[in-house]
Design a protein around this nucleic acid. Structure first.
Lengths: 322, 322
DNA sequence: GGGCGCAATGAAAGCGCATTCAAAAGTTTC
DNA sequence: GAAACTTTTGAATGCGCTTTCATTGCGCCC
């Protein structure tokens, strides 16, 4: 493997000049720059990343920690992070915590030793631990706010309001809310908006796992409330609800309406297609990454970013039954 | 930040001993080992990864390249890689190529400069390019075979056979095959098994994008063949086919049966639930990663691994119409 | 034409660790 | 008790690069 030294001597310059020619081209005369570049290509030179990292103090890696890669919502975030990172010539170290909140802190701290900054998507890590992690290195939160830390969140409260208004306009006055995990920040955030729409009573049917089976389990509870519509913490739950309602012979949307949250791909694969609050997850991944660059470079606090959401009306919501 | 030097002097030993105490504990006397470990904890010492990497020539990172993180199949593989890597104290650098085969080679080569080995999931990269990449560093292929290179694949041919036998048993004698992308290795592999089941005629309806819309488009073609069953390249396509059939008022499974490939989560979310050939994707990610360790450590060729698949019968397949 | 400022260059000093090598200490064997 | 090992230790080297600092060459102005 050719080193920078080799390139330098092949080009007839010092290693210092060779280094500059490759990483700060405009500090070197055109002639030498071309000599170096030519030599580098001829020798098929690839800089040693570890050496660059050690000498410069920058790994050009960013970390991404999330609960579950197989969850389409998190996968969408990962995709956004990844895309934005590549644009800025960074690589992404991904760590899936497997929904294990206890392992999370260790994973984060470990990752922090090898990255320039971290995008943390951890709905359930205690706030105190998050602060600890933030003290150890640049960090941006996704889908969660902690005072004083940079974050990218969604205006889910507005989403809840939009969904409830939509349902009210369809004549629904009693809506069941199927919640997500207890400790989830975004669930808490959404719940606060449940009472904001006049003329709509929201009945809470409790906390549920944010996956299909969680929805299956919740459906019967929701049905039991006598509500004419069900608002779900996320689409996976909503799809579970739809499955169970179908099994029980309850017609959607004629007997009952269902609204989800996220707008994952599967929302359009099912019948009826799912009315849902679309959340720009991929965009959030991008924003978080670009916010992270800012925080790193300027060591500013980083203004929290809040992205707009949008209700997408499909077939699972319809007029309330008479 | 405390360095190894600091720890060493705090423990009253040389840096060499400190280094050994932490990374090769049994080459150091018990007494000194404890002094060092104690000092390291007291100073909150964290080794500098870049320095370790430079000095040892090992980054303890592995790379994972795949076409699309948002695709549940690839996400499942990523999860497996991630899990296995953490078990061996490796971190995973993920690169999503965004289904752009032209960018792929550059991405791979770039990633190879910062990892100890690579898991490559690239259904469409030309074989020649793959060989090039393999020459540049340890590499394991997933869901694809190339002579002489280590790989983890699935016995999809057996899956196709199982699916066709299942359909034949249900009285189907004419089956439409909705193919995946033209250049896809696994599509080619599956096609070879299409003619192996006596008494079942398979009609090829061509190559399609391996996503929902691809299936929507393919459904009409499949219907046009007069087949009584449709076998699809993957579940996403199958779900698209189901959507379109529903729109056209074709009943599944009474009018026509549909079988997919992969067994993604959504296969159970839809109605009818999807009969599909289950592929152990997460396991493949694990196997690939562990195979990569072997290849790295022993510089052996690495025996290709072929994982078994299994037909999961659900509601989308039924007796052929009379 | 001499002094000044600026751009271009190279020598050299690390970045923080692993690892080699030789020396020191401790153990066994006859 | 000495020779022959083995284990434990520290000094020193270098991984491949970036970056500071001093030096050189050069155009420019008065």
């Amino acid at each position: 493997m050719a080193t920078l030294r080799d390139v330098a001597s092949a080009a007839g310059v010092s290693p210092a000049t060779a280094s500059r020619a490759l990483s700060a081209p405009d500090t070197v005369s055109m002639a030498k720059r071309h000599q170096v570049i030519e030599a580098a290509e001829r020798l098929n030179y690839k800089p040693n990343r570890s050496a660059q990292a050690l000498a410069s103090g920058q790994s050009r890696h960013i970390g991404l920690v999330l609960p579950d890669l197989a969850n389409p919502s998190f996968a969408a975030i990962a995709k956004g992070v990844q895309a934005q990172a590549r644009g800025t010539r960074y690589s992404v170290l991904v760590a899936d915590t497997d929904e294990d909140p206890r392992a999370e802190r260790a994973i984060v701290r470990d990752l922090q030793t090898s990255v320039d900054g971290l995008v943390l998507c951890s709905p359930r890590m205690p706030e105190e631990e998050i602060r600890e992690c933030a003290a150890a290195g640049p960090l941006v939160l996704v889908n969660r706010e902690v005072d004083g830390l940079p974050s990218v969140t969604f205006d889910s409260a507005a989403g809840v309001t939009q969904a409830l208004q939509h349902l009210r306009a369809l004549g629904h006055h009693r809506v069941a809310y199927v919640g997500g995990p207890e400790a989830s920040w975004s669930d808490a955030h959404r719940r606060r908006a449940l009472g904001t729409v006049e003329g709509v009573d929201v009945v809470d049917v409790g906390a549920h796992r944010p996956i299909h089976t969680g929805g299956v389990a919740a459906a019967d509870l929701a049905l039991g409330t006598g509500a004419t519509a069900i608002l779900c913490y996320n689409d996976l739950i909503a799809l579970g609800v739809l499955s169970r309602l179908r099994t029980r012979g309850v017609d959607v949307p004629n007997d009952i309406s269902v609204v989800g949250f996220d707008d994952i791909g599967a929302a359009t694969y099912v019948a009826p297609t799912l009315t849902t609050v679309a959340i720009p997850l991929t965009r959030a991944g991008q924003e978080a990454t670009s916010l992270l660059s800012q925080v790193r470079d300027t060591s500013a606090d980083g203004t929290p970013v809040r992205l707009p959401v949008e209700l997408v009306v499909r077939d699972s919501s319809g007029p309330a039954p008479a």
